[in-house]
Amino acid sequence: MAWALGANSNSPPFAPAIGANAISTMQAAFVVGVLAALGAVTQGGAISETVGADLINTVGITPLAATAGLLTAAMFMAFGVYSGYPVPAAFATTGAMVGVGLSLGGDPATATYQRLGLFWVLVPPVSGGMAYGTAKLLRGENVPETVGVPLLAGVVAGIVANIQLGVIPAPPGAAQNSLAGYVSMVAGLPAVGGLDLARVLATAALALLGFVAIRRRTQASVDRGIRTFLVVLGGIVAFSSGGSQVGLATGPLQNLFVEQLRLDVLLLLSLGAVGILAGAWMGAPRLLQATSREYAQLGVRRSIAALVPGFIIAQAAIALSIPISFNNIIISGVIGGGLAAGSAGVSRRKIGVTVTFWVLTLVTSVAIGYGVHTAFSTVLGVQ
Score class of each variant (00 low, 15 high):
residue 38 L to H: 14
residue 228 T to K: 03
residue 237 V to S: 12
residue 22 A to Q: 10
residue 288 L to T: 06
residue 230 L to Y: 09
residue 26 M to N: 15
residue 109 A to T: 06
residue 297 Q to F: 15
residue 173 G to Q: 04
residue 99 G to P: 09
residue 32 V to G: 02
residue 10 N to K: 14
residue 339 L to K: 04
residue 150 P to M: 04
residue 350 K to G: 07
residue 159 I to M: 10
residue 138 L to C: 08
residue 119 F to K: 08
residue 13 P to C: 02
residue 298 L to G: 03
residue 307 L to V: 09
residue 167 V to A: 05
residue 170 A to Q: 05
residue 314 A to K: 03
residue 287 L to P: 01
residue 344 A to S: 10
residue 138 L to V: 09
residue 135 A to P: 11
residue 373 H to S: 11
residue 164 Q to A: 12
residue 290 A to G: 09
residue 3 W to Y: 07
residue 5 L to Y: 02
residue 307 L to D: 07
residue 102 L to E: 13
residue 141 E to N: 14
residue 192 V to Y: 06
residue 222 V to W: 04
residue 82 Y to K: 03
residue 160 V to I: 08
residue 226 I to C: 01
residue 26 M to I: 13
residue 118 L to R: 10
residue 382 V to R: 09
residue 176 Q to P: 00
residue 56 I to T: 12
residue 285 P to T: 14
residue 174 A to Q: 06
residue 180 A to P: 08
residue 96 A to P: 00
residue 262 R to W: 14
residue 286 R to L: 03
residue 283 G to P: 08
residue 68 A to P: 11
residue 283 G to R: 02
residue 251 G to C: 12
residue 225 G to L: 08
residue 219 Q to N: 13
residue 274 V to G: 07
residue 319 A to W: 12
residue 114 Q to V: 14
residue 26 M to R: 15
residue 40 A to Q: 04
residue 275 G to A: 01
residue 337 G to Y: 10
residue 159 I to S: 08
residue 124 P to T: 10
residue 60 G to M: 13
residue 47 I to C: 03
residue 145 E to G: 15
residue 270 S to Y: 04
residue 371 G to M: 11
residue 352 G to V: 09
residue 218 T to K: 04
residue 58 T to E: 15
residue 121 V to D: 06
residue 33 G to C: 05
residue 313 I to K: 07
residue 198 A to D: 00
residue 250 T to F: 09
residue 229 F to E: 00
residue 60 G to F: 13
residue 62 T to Q: 07
residue 347 S to L: 09
residue 263 L to A: 11
residue 21 N to Y: 12
residue 186 V to G: 04
residue 256 L to Y: 12
residue 78 A to D: 15
residue 227 R to K: 15
residue 224 R to V: 15
residue 263 L to T: 02
residue 124 P to E: 08
residue 354 T to H: 05
residue 72 T to Q: 10
residue 99 G to E: 02
residue 49 E to D: 10
residue 125 P to R: 07
residue 380 L to K: 01
residue 313 I to P: 05
